[in-house]
Design a protein around this nucleic acid. Structure first.
Ligand SMILES: NC(=O)c1ccc[n+]([C@@H]2O[C@H](COP(=O)([O-])OP(=O)(O)OC[C@H]3O[C@@H](n4cnc5c(N)ncnc54)[C@H](O)[C@@H]3O)[C@@H](O)[C@H]2O)c1
Ligand SMILES: NC(=O)c1ccc[n+]([C@@H]2O[C@H](COP(=O)([O-])OP(=O)(O)OC[C@H]3O[C@@H](n4cnc5c(N)ncnc54)[C@H](O)[C@@H]3O)[C@@H](O)[C@H]2O)c1
Lengths: 236, 236
DNA sequence: ACGCGCTTGTGAAGATGTGCACAAAACGGT
DNA sequence: ACCGTTTTGTGCACATCTTCACAAGCGCGT
């Protein structure tokens, strides 16, 4: 058998991501801001009021120059010769990331992973609230997980419109993921976090991010191999 | 209080990742190869024997040019006018990623997430074997999860050297992660997959990859905000 | 008031990653 | 044997990301 060209759904869209579209904040920077935010929050809790780019960069695992450039995209919020005011920076980063708003989240697929996610405290660090746990398995429906009742996935559309859900988390088996995704999008969800090992097709205005354990392992395997080759070479 | 420069552990190292160090395969490409591999495996199971860059690219969610360039880094394994032989490409990508070897993995922290990971079938897609589940909580020690007995984390060093473990997965609370990481590295682990929301410090020869749910959500939040701003603007 | 030391913010250079467009190669039909 | 069709592999231009290096700005001590 030989396959002929045929797009899976749409000619695959990896929405949103197109960078400098409107804001001056680049994708790479956006991915690091949450790290800075976490470090800063932790510093604030330790009573630190001011921090230099050097210290913050070290704690965040990046170089000081990169950190300063990242922050400079939000505005000029540091003081030369002094550093950054921790609380002020926390606020500015939160605002830049849109964390001053609140987001309702549904989790679809309440198996091993979905349950862990549902109970994940750090979920609601700021702004995120799980308003629905959905599963297709009627045996699971009705049970309470982390204080939230599991509902049947038939109710997906209802729950999404009732709670104005903008973020959907997919933790179903791979086979169901695209269907679930289509339903989420159809019901108005515009951001999807996908844990299933499949490439999702979505319209251009929908953002998808994936978390894929086996990809991560394979990347580590690649580097392991590289190391062992280098090692062997050093010996031989 | 004001913080003065002091590195958290080492002057933070984000090991390995330095790209074109030895192999001609770039980091960006390495991150996509597992996706191609998954699609190809699935095609092979459907009885597809040959695939064009266009079809494969669509299924993998990338452009055809990028796909071809990625594959060209492994060698010239396509046939002009025809496409790629699916099985052969599966083999070549597996080899490039180092999946022809086997890797032993330990999971440290068998809470909600650790249990889900332990039971994750797709774990051993190819090459990865979980040889240890470790937890500090004696109440959990001895229980069986996915057929593997949970051992106390005191045995970490023993298990790692006995099974020649090269990959460690950290699923402990954030507070314990750096300690666990240090012990893993001390015992000889050279790749770490970290689920705890902290930046780990490791020596240069150790690779760390992180999976961070709350960062993913915050990135989605940023784009949600961007969308709603654009929308508002279109109205106003 | 002034100079000194510190740290930010950023221009410019370098490195990496992406997408286009096309020549080169393979196949099939005649 | 040859031609037309298809699809790869890649040179090149462009875009994005990173790193360097330093002038500008700020606070403090004198
Ligand atoms: N367990 C892990 O550690 C892990 C890690 C990485 C990725 N994943 C992926 O996450 C997904 C879930 O993994 P899991 O271990 O929780 O699997 P699981 O089988 O334990 O849970 C899947 C759940 O989804 C439900 N479901 C199935 N079809 C559905 C549908 N159409 N609508 C709503 N719910 C539906 C099932 O009833 C079940 O409860 C899988 O795609 C898996 O590959 C899991
Ligand atoms: N649950 C999730 O969905 C989720 C999602 C993303 C990230 N995380 C992160 O993953 C980690 C684990 O989450 P969880 O929900 O499974 O937490 P959990 O509390 O259910 O499990 C943590 C486990 O680690 C064990 N532990 C504690 N200290 C240890 C040590 N020093 N050595 C070995 N084991 C130790 C505990 O006994 C417990 O069993 C946390 O850092 C959490 O932030 C969890």
């Amino acid at each position: 058998m030989t396959m002929t060209p045929r797009s899976s759904h749409s000619p695959n869209s990896r929405a949103g991501g197109r960078p400098g579209r409107r804001t001056g904040i680049s994708e790479a920077t956006v991915a690091r801001l949450p790290v800075y935010l976490r470090v800063l929050t932790s510093l604030a809790e330790s009573g630190v009021s001011t921090v230099s780019s050097e210290v913050l960069a070290n704690a965040a695992g990046v170089g000081p120059a990169k950190l300063r450039k990242d922050l400079s995209h939000l505005g000029s919020y540091g003081t030369r010769g002094v550093g950054y005011d921790v609380e002020f920076l926390v606020y500015q980063i939160s605002r830049a990331l849109g964390l001053t708003q609140h987001y309702s989240v549904v989790i679809v697929g309440v198996g091993n992973l979905g349950q862990a996610l549902a109970g994940y405290a750090g979920f609601g660090t700021r702004g995120f609230r799980v308003v629905g746990l959905l599963d297709a398995d009627r045996a699971r429906v009705g049970s309470l997980i982390a204080g939230i009742e599991v509902r049947h996935s038939d109710e997906l559309e209802t729950i999404i419109s009732e709670h104005d859900v903008s973020i959907g988390v997919i933790a179903t088996p791979a086979g169901a993921a695209q269907d679930v995704c289509d339903r989420l999008v159809g019901a108005g969800v515009t951001s999807v976090l996908n844990f299933a090992p499949v490439v999702l097709s979505v319209p251009d205005d929908v953002d998808v991010r994936k978390v894929d354990l086996s990809i991560e392992l394979q990347i580590l395997a690649f580097h392991e191999q590289r190391k062992s080759l280098v090692e062997q070479e050093a010996v031989g």
